[in-house]
């Protein structure tokens, strides 16, 4: 499958500021083995890349692009939910 600029979000398998340690990053088969990491305070944040909407445009966001700045990362159950 060709590269899709607006594909699914995926973790990079690395924490912020580091290269993925597990084998070559470019997967050779279609099946991607996602790294399971658990976020903990005092530890580096899991890095990820995801499609995003930002001020009228579709874009891709990569967490590690924001190294050097404070980041507030907020998850929520879904758009159009009430709370």
């Amino acid at each position: 499958m060709a590269d899709q600029p607006q594909g699914c979000a995926r973790t990079t398998g690395a924490v912020m500021g580091e290269q993925p340690s597990a084998a070559p990053a470019n997967e050779t088969t279609g099946t991607k083995k996602e790294m399971t990491m658990t976020a903990r305070v005092g530890q580096k944040a899991p890095d990820f890349e995801a499609p995003a909407y930002y001020r009228g445009k579709f874009t891709t966001i990569k967490l590690s692009d924001y190294l050097g700045r404070w980041v507030l990362l907020c998850f929520y159950p879904g758009d159009f939910t009430f709370v």
Binding site: V41, K44, W70
Partner: peptide, 15 residues
């Protein structure tokens, strides 16, 4: 779905 998780990440990438 994803729960209401909120993470403060510092400039070094540390949560």
């Amino acid at each position: 779905i994803e729960l209401r998780g909120r993470f403060i990440i510092d400039p070094d990438g540390v949560i």
